[in-house]
């Protein structure tokens, strides 16, 4: 091939990658950098001047008890959702690959909640928790069903976990099914010819070869649980009394409700760093256990 001149190269790059890179620069790179500058100011989002305050916003963030309460709550939520979603999805995946009738129909059915956004799902469940559950007479004797889950701080948290689990298990189920089906048949045959029993095949052949599915599912559930906002907003609105306010909602409220853009952005950066560290640890821990088929 003939050598391309600098102008040909530039022209080609701009034609093909130009639109994407322009939009990406305008809406991601530039705001990201501008956001770091914002954290060094005490801007309220309205006034013309942005007063430079140095690292004051970060110091406030680190000392802000409400912020760390919401981070801790988010952690608790992430742990509960990640465990419940993955355990349920994995067990369901085993059930739906065991050759029962209608498994393709069921697989599609369990996925349905993922077609619908957190806002609508939250409202559907507001109705279930607020109107249906308190109305079931046979549940009256069980203490946790005596009043609406959404009016009790502790139960409202579990309501969020329950809805998130209900929604996401159908999604992860698909990935686990792909993983289970993707283990080559001849490996299992070879192992059983070599005298491995069912338990050994599961532990030494199936699970290691499925490691990639676990890494993907954990990563997806982890990051989506960290970022939860829609469901939080429509199901509990952070209530009762702000007890279920997760990190995203706290950041949103600091910036747009309390008009502290600088502080809100500092919280967002701290949140980002925490999430990044957790996600990186998870991916590396998982990758080290992965086996090539």
């Amino acid at each position: 091939m003939r050598k391309e001149s600098f102008w040909t190269k530039t022209k080609l790059f701009l034609i093909f990658a130009g639109p994407s890179m322009l939009a990406f620069t305008c809406f991601v790179i530039f705001p990201f950098i501008y956001g770091i500058y914002l954290t060094l100011t005490s801007w309220d989002g309205i006034s013309k001047t942005k007063e430079f305050v140095g690292l004051a916003n970060y110091i406030t963030t680190f000392q802000d008890e409400a912020f760390w309460t919401s981070i801790l709550l988010t952690f608790k939520y992430v742990v509960c959702v990640v465990i419940l979603v993955n355990v349920i999805a994995f067990l369901l995946a085993i059930l739906l690959t065991s050759g029962i009738k209608g498994q393709n129909f069921l697989r599609a059915g369990f996925f349905t909640p993922n077609l619908i956004g957190g806002i609508v799902l939250g409202f559907i469940w507001t109705f279930i928790f607020g109107r249906v559950l308190p109305n079931l007479s046979f549940l009256e004797s069980i203490p946790i069903f005596q009043k609406s889950w959404l009016s009790d701080p502790n139960m409202a948290f579990w309501a969020l976990v329950l809805v998130a689990t209900w929604q996401q298990s159908g999604y992860m189920l698909l990935i686990y099914i792909a993983g289970i089906v993707g283990v080559p048949k001849d490996y299992i045959e070879a192992a059983s010819i070599d005298g491995a029993n069912a338990k050994q095949i599961t532990w030494y052949i199936r699970l290691p070869l499925m490691m990639q599915s676990f890494v993907i599912c954990l990563f997806l559930t982890l990051t989506s649980a960290f970022k939860v906002y829609d469901l939080n907003l429509s199901l509990t609105e952070g209530g009762p009394y702000g007890t279920t306010k997760m990190a995203s909602m706290t950041i949103f409220d600091t910036a747009f409700t309390a008009h502290q853009y600088g502080l809100g952005q500092a919280q967002a950066i701290v949140f980002f760093v925490i999430m990044l560290v957790v996600a990186v640890i998870q991916v590396f821990a998982g990758k080290s256990k992965e086996v090539e088929a």
Binding site: A17, K227, Y229, S248, F271, A279
Partner: peptide
């Protein structure tokens, strides 16, 4: 450079972009 920039966004949550995006 473009490739590196684009794939590194996949770990950035929207919450980090939200406030400056709206300001700009």
């Amino acid at each position: 450079i473009s490739f590196l920039l684009l794939i590194s966004y996949m770990v950035v949550p929207f919450q980090v972009i939200m406030i400056p995006l709206l300001s700009i």
